[in-house]
Protein backbone atom coordinates (compact mmCIF):
# COMPACT_ATOMS: atom_id res chain seq x y z
CA UNK A 1 0.00 0.00 0.00
CA UNK A 2 1.47 3.34 -1.05
CA UNK A 3 1.60 6.46 1.12
CA UNK A 4 0.05 9.87 0.49
CA UNK A 5 1.65 13.26 -0.29
CA UNK A 6 4.13 15.15 1.92
CA UNK A 7 1.51 17.54 3.34
CA UNK A 8 -0.61 14.71 4.71
CA UNK A 9 2.49 13.02 6.19
CA UNK A 10 3.60 16.11 8.12
CA UNK A 11 0.11 16.86 9.47
CA UNK A 12 -0.21 13.22 10.53
CA UNK A 13 3.04 13.44 12.50
CA UNK A 14 1.78 16.59 14.19
CA UNK A 15 -1.74 15.39 15.08
CA UNK A 16 -1.58 11.64 15.79
CA UNK A 17 -0.36 11.96 19.39
CA UNK A 18 -2.97 14.61 20.19
CA UNK A 19 -5.76 12.42 18.79
CA UNK A 20 -4.55 9.48 20.94
CA UNK A 21 -4.57 11.66 24.09
CA UNK A 22 -8.08 12.89 23.29
CA UNK A 23 -9.28 9.28 23.02
CA UNK A 24 -7.85 8.51 26.46
CA UNK A 25 -9.58 11.63 27.83
CA UNK A 26 -12.93 10.44 26.48
CA UNK A 27 -12.43 6.97 28.03
CA UNK A 28 -11.29 8.04 31.51
CA UNK A 29 -13.99 10.71 31.86
CA UNK A 30 -16.68 8.29 30.66
CA UNK A 31 -18.66 8.47 33.92
CA UNK A 32 -18.63 12.32 34.02
CA UNK A 33 -19.22 13.39 30.39
CA UNK A 34 -20.81 11.77 27.30
CA UNK A 35 -18.79 9.11 25.54
CA UNK A 36 -17.15 6.22 27.33
CA UNK A 37 -15.52 3.01 26.22
CA UNK A 38 -16.93 2.67 22.73
CA UNK A 39 -16.47 6.27 21.50
CA UNK A 40 -12.98 6.58 22.95
CA UNK A 41 -11.94 3.26 21.46
CA UNK A 42 -13.07 4.41 18.02
CA UNK A 43 -10.93 7.58 18.35
CA UNK A 44 -7.85 5.58 19.45
CA UNK A 45 -8.30 3.28 16.46
CA UNK A 46 -8.53 6.42 14.31
CA UNK A 47 -5.04 7.54 15.37
CA UNK A 48 -3.51 4.25 14.20
CA UNK A 49 -5.58 4.20 10.98
CA UNK A 50 -4.33 7.72 10.21
CA UNK A 51 -0.69 6.57 10.54
CA UNK A 52 -1.20 3.53 8.28
CA UNK A 53 -3.07 5.60 5.67
CA UNK A 54 -0.48 8.38 5.49
CA UNK A 55 2.75 6.37 5.51
CA UNK A 56 1.72 3.11 3.85
CA UNK A 57 3.27 -0.27 4.54
CA UNK A 58 4.06 -3.64 2.96
CA UNK A 59 1.99 -6.76 3.44
CA UNK A 60 4.35 -8.72 5.71
CA UNK A 61 4.55 -5.94 8.29
CA UNK A 62 0.77 -5.52 8.22
CA UNK A 63 0.29 -9.23 8.95
CA UNK A 64 2.49 -8.93 12.05
CA UNK A 65 0.48 -5.98 13.33
CA UNK A 66 -2.74 -7.91 12.76
CA UNK A 67 -1.57 -10.81 14.94
CA UNK A 68 -0.76 -8.43 17.80
CA UNK A 69 -4.04 -6.53 17.65
CA UNK A 70 -6.07 -9.73 17.49
CA UNK A 71 -4.31 -11.06 20.61
CA UNK A 72 -4.87 -7.74 22.45
CA UNK A 73 -8.59 -7.83 21.66
CA UNK A 74 -9.00 -11.34 23.08
CA UNK A 75 -7.06 -10.50 26.25
CA UNK A 76 -9.09 -7.32 26.91
CA UNK A 77 -12.48 -9.00 26.59
CA UNK A 78 -11.21 -11.81 28.88
CA UNK A 79 -10.24 -9.27 31.57
CA UNK A 80 -13.69 -7.66 31.38
CA UNK A 81 -15.29 -11.06 32.02
CA UNK A 82 -12.85 -11.71 34.87
CA UNK A 83 -13.77 -8.40 36.54
CA UNK A 84 -17.45 -9.31 36.31
CA UNK A 85 -16.93 -12.78 37.81
CA UNK A 86 -14.76 -11.34 40.60
CA UNK A 87 -17.84 -9.79 42.21
CA UNK A 88 -19.27 -13.28 42.54
CA UNK A 89 -16.42 -14.40 44.82
CA UNK A 90 -16.07 -11.20 46.86
CA UNK A 91 -19.27 -11.79 48.75
CA UNK A 92 -21.95 -9.83 46.88
CA UNK A 93 -23.23 -12.90 44.93
CA UNK A 94 -24.37 -10.83 41.89
CA UNK A 95 -22.70 -10.32 38.51
CA UNK A 96 -21.50 -6.74 37.74
CA UNK A 97 -21.87 -5.68 41.39
CA UNK A 98 -19.92 -2.66 42.64
CA UNK A 99 -17.34 -3.88 45.17
CA UNK A 100 -15.00 -0.84 45.24
CA UNK A 101 -15.61 2.32 47.36
CA UNK A 102 -17.67 4.92 45.55
CA UNK A 103 -15.58 8.05 46.25
CA UNK A 104 -16.47 11.75 45.89
CA UNK A 105 -19.11 12.99 43.45
CA UNK A 106 -17.61 14.65 40.35
CA UNK A 107 -14.02 13.50 40.91
CA UNK A 108 -12.15 11.35 38.40
CA UNK A 109 -11.72 8.41 40.80
CA UNK A 110 -15.33 7.70 41.72
CA UNK A 111 -18.17 5.44 40.60
CA UNK A 112 -16.51 2.23 41.80
CA UNK A 113 -15.68 -0.33 39.11
CA UNK A 114 -17.31 1.50 36.18
CA UNK A 115 -14.05 3.30 35.12
CA UNK A 116 -12.25 -0.09 35.03
CA UNK A 117 -14.91 -1.54 32.73
CA UNK A 118 -14.67 1.59 30.55
CA UNK A 119 -10.89 1.31 30.18
CA UNK A 120 -10.87 -2.35 29.15
CA UNK A 121 -13.86 -1.99 26.82
CA UNK A 122 -12.00 0.93 25.18
CA UNK A 123 -8.92 -1.25 24.56
CA UNK A 124 -11.11 -4.04 23.18
CA UNK A 125 -13.01 -1.79 20.74
CA UNK A 126 -9.81 -0.12 19.49
CA UNK A 127 -8.10 -3.46 18.82
CA UNK A 128 -11.20 -4.85 17.09
CA UNK A 129 -11.56 -1.88 14.72
CA UNK A 130 -7.85 -1.99 13.80
CA UNK A 131 -8.14 -5.74 13.13
CA UNK A 132 -11.10 -5.24 10.79
CA UNK A 133 -9.30 -2.44 8.91
CA UNK A 134 -6.11 -4.51 8.48
CA UNK A 135 -8.08 -7.55 7.34
CA UNK A 136 -9.74 -5.49 4.59
CA UNK A 137 -6.36 -4.09 3.41
CA UNK A 138 -4.65 -7.51 3.32
CA UNK A 139 -7.60 -8.99 1.42
CA UNK A 140 -7.37 -6.24 -1.22
CA UNK A 141 -3.57 -6.60 -1.57
CA UNK A 142 -3.92 -10.33 -2.09
CA UNK A 143 -6.72 -10.00 -4.63
CA UNK A 144 -4.78 -7.56 -6.82
CA UNK A 145 -1.73 -9.81 -7.07
Amino acid sequence: MKGMSIIVKKVTQLLSGIIFLYGIYIITHGHLTPGGGFAGGAIIAGAYILLILAFGSDTIKLKNIEKGSSLTESLAIFIVLLLAVLAFFLGSKIFFANYLPKGQLGEIISAGVIPLYNIFIGIEVAAAIITIFLALIIFKEEITK
Partner: peptide, 16 residues
Protein backbone atom coordinates in the same frame (compact mmCIF):
# COMPACT_ATOMS: atom_id res chain seq x y z
CA UNK B 1 -6.62 24.68 15.30
CA UNK B 2 -7.91 21.12 14.95
CA UNK B 3 -10.64 22.35 12.59
CA UNK B 4 -8.13 24.47 10.61
CA UNK B 5 -5.66 21.61 9.99
CA UNK B 6 -8.39 19.02 9.42
CA UNK B 7 -10.40 21.00 6.89
CA UNK B 8 -7.46 22.23 4.81
CA UNK B 9 -5.73 18.85 4.61
CA UNK B 10 -9.00 17.11 3.75
CA UNK B 11 -9.57 19.60 0.91
CA UNK B 12 -6.05 19.03 -0.44
CA UNK B 13 -6.46 15.23 -0.37
CA UNK B 14 -9.84 15.46 -2.12
CA UNK B 15 -8.46 17.65 -4.93
CA UNK B 16 -5.54 15.31 -5.58
Amino acid sequence: PLLFFGATVAAHALVK
